[in-house]
């Protein structure tokens, strides 16, 4: 049988398969090389997966839709570097599933907000942004500090992240591998069997929302915000080395 346009145009099924093949070629050509090319993810020390508390804070960030107004991606432009700090590295979001790069900046970029403000400031700001930044258009989130954090399923959440490649440890061997890669202190926070215990301990020690009587959603969210962009020590990274990862 001779191939002709008419076959495609008059058979919906064949048209569908043909369309899918055509689109996949485009996709494969663009995506496959990124898996092969060696210099996409920078080799920098310090990046670690989130602790259970930070990870739950990240869930709340996503739940509240913070990404609709805040990006977490400092682009390599001079104006952005001056305002927000060092440009974001691919390595810094390698444990983010899904990443929170975002594309809309109604508010400022948050990729390096960690350590910039105090916990107290974050509590005031989340509760009522205009109390500290009078010109802010960000909505109030007064329920965060009042709502107890549901962390009953935190181990399951870490297990889910583990299946997509985040090195939370489910066995002694994985724990030992983490000790080697991240050091004992961090490796301990990545243990799935101790997830709840670690979460509560960090919230107690950090006292992020200034109220130790219960672990609130604000505790988790602030713990997450305070770690953003702080893992890589840029005084130990040469700028020209990062240039070569592109």
């Amino acid at each position: 049988m001779k191939f002709s346009h008419e076959i495609l145009e008059t058979n919906a099924g064949i048209l569908l398969i043909g369309t899918m093949i055509a689109i996949s070629i485009g996709g494969l050509v663009e995506i496959t090389p990124l898996f092969l090319i060696k210099d996409t993810v920078e080799d920098v020390p310090g990046v670690r997966p989130y602790t259970p508390l930070e990870s739950r804070g990240r869930d709340i960030f996503v739940r509240e839709g913070c990404y609709t107004c805040h990006s977490q991606m400092i682009r390599p432009f001079r104006d952005e570097q001056l305002r927000y700090g060092h440009y974001s590295l691919a390595a810094e979001s390698k444990y983010d599933h899904p990443f929170q790069w975002g594309s809309k900046r109604t508010g400022p970029d948050l990729a390096r907000v960690g350590g910039k403000y105090s916990n107290e400031w974050h509590v005031q700001h989340l509760n009522q942004p205009t109390s500290v930044v009078p010109e802010s258009v960000m909505p109030n989130y007064p329920w965060l500090a009042k709502t107890p954090l549901d962390y009953s399923d935190v181990a399951d959440r870490l297990r889910a992240l583990r299946t997509v490649g985040v090195p939370y440890s489910a066995s002694e061997a994985e724990y030992q591998a983490n000790v080697k890669q991240f050091g004992a202190e961090v490796a301990n926070t990545l243990r799935i069997d101790k997830a709840q215990e670690n979460l509560v301990a960090q919230a107690q020690a950090g006292n992020y929302d200034g109220d130790r009587s219960f672990v609130s959603e604000a505790d988790a969210l602030i713990a997450y915000l305070q770690v953003l962009g702080t893992m890589v020590d840029f005084s130990k990274v040469k700028p020209e080395d990062l240039v070569k990862y592109r």
Binding site: R75, P76, F77, R78, Q81, Y87, P239, E240, L242, V243, K244, Y245, R246
Partner: peptide, 16 residues
């Protein structure tokens, strides 16, 4: 002095 192919990071470093 180093030379590298065009990319935004090299451009930023030069501009900085």
């Amino acid at each position: 002095t180093e030379t590298w192919h065009w990319n935004t990071r090299a451009k930023l470093l030069k501009e900085t």
